[in-house]
Simulated scan of single mutants.
Amino acid sequence: MKKTYLQQIKRLLFFSFVFVLFSLNANAQTSESIEKPEKEFKNTIHFNITNPLIFGGKSLIFGYERVLKNNQTFSINIGQAGLPSFNFVNDAEFKSNTILSEGGFHLSGDYRFYLSKLNKYNAPRGVYIGPYISHNTFDKKHSWQYQPDDAASLTTVESDMNIKINQIGFQLGYQFVFWKRFSVDMILIGPGIATYKIKADIGGNLSDEDRQKFLDKLNEALKDKFPGYDGLDLDGEFQKKGTVSTTSFGYRYMIQIGYRF
């Protein structure tokens, strides 16, 4: 059974918390004073390893973090976003034929306050909190073969989908530094408010009933991939028009590896 997006998030979150707890125990602070490293590196280049694991190898996002004060930084992330495969690929009725085109874009930023009373070292090392904002665009044009149970021949169906997600929220994270130069940055909790704008155009000789059946399957697949989209009351808008624009819960979770300079 394939794991859903939310199941993958929960699993990564659990192991991240365990990792942080062990680190905090091993590096317990004996004094409330902040110790400065021998040499301060104010810049860090990050690579997001969460998105490729969940959304596939086409999601390549890089980040940059800059130290402003001993306990404050800002960071930006930019890169290529990819839309993952859906659960109904190779369904009994709909079978994947060809991906005609796909692409996407990610841009996000945050401001971080590293908690002096909890951290032994200056930023960017230790526990941090702060606001964030993000934008994601996904595009995918796909060709399908559709054969209902009562049909003898196949029908070619093309879907053209665009998803835009804008989100703002507040996050809690922890950043480890190893050998002064290397880092592992984990955003552990990042609830927020997100606006979802989703459009799906379906081409092909389909009846209204078959078109709605495809959109129903697509709608269910989106619920598995995007936290906050699940459980929305769409009032039939998506099934009838193939478009929806709404505001709901969003979530940010990320693990990055970095190099300091």
Rank of each mutant, 00 (worst) to 15 (best):
G126N: 02
L234I: 11
F17E: 02
P124E: 06
F17K: 03
N48A: 07
M1A: 12
S183R: 00
I34C: 05
N48G: 03
Q167C: 04
T44P: 02
F238A: 01
T137E: 10
F74S: 02
K225M: 10
M161E: 06
G169V: 10
G231E: 05
K199W: 10
L172M: 12
K241D: 13
G203S: 15
K217W: 08
I165E: 00
Y114C: 00
T50M: 06
K36S: 14
R252S: 02
A123W: 01
I193T: 13
D110E: 12
Q29W: 04
Y146M: 03
Y111L: 15
F138N: 00
I193M: 14
N122R: 09
P191T: 06
S16T: 15
Q212K: 15
K42W: 05
R260L: 03
F88Q: 02
G236Q: 07
I45D: 01
K42V: 11
G103S: 05
L154G: 05
K2I: 13
I163F: 01
I165N: 00
Y132V: 05
T247S: 11
N119D: 08
T73W: 00
L118A: 10
S85P: 08
F88N: 03
K42D: 11
D110T: 07
G130V: 04
E65R: 12
S75T: 10
V20C: 11
V244L: 12
S23Y: 14
N77K: 13
I34Q: 03
A123H: 00
F47P: 01
I187E: 01
T98G: 04
K199M: 13
L154P: 04
G228V: 02
T4I: 11
P131L: 11
L188G: 03
A26D: 11
D185H: 07
K240Y: 11
K199I: 13
L24A: 07
I45N: 01
H46I: 09
I187S: 01
L115V: 15
A194G: 02
P37T: 10
W144Q: 00
T195I: 13
I78H: 07
V177L: 12
K141I: 09
L60R: 06
L188M: 09
P131D: 10
A26V: 09
E93Y: 06
L234Y: 07
F182D: 04
R252H: 08
S75W: 03
Y196T: 00
F17D: 02
S23N: 12
L188H: 04
S59D: 04
K10T: 13
N166E: 07
K197T: 14
D139S: 15
F47I: 14
G79C: 09
L100Q: 14
K225A: 10
D233N: 11
N77G: 06
G130Q: 03
R211D: 04
F249M: 07
K95T: 11
T50N: 09
R252N: 10
F22Q: 09
M254H: 05
R125N: 14
S31P: 03
D235P: 04
P148E: 01
F178I: 13
G228Q: 00
F17I: 15
R11C: 06
A221I: 04
L6S: 12
V67A: 09
I165V: 15
K58A: 10
I198S: 03
L232A: 05
V20H: 06
T4K: 07
P131I: 04
Y253G: 03
F138V: 03
M254L: 10
W144R: 00
D210E: 12
S96P: 05
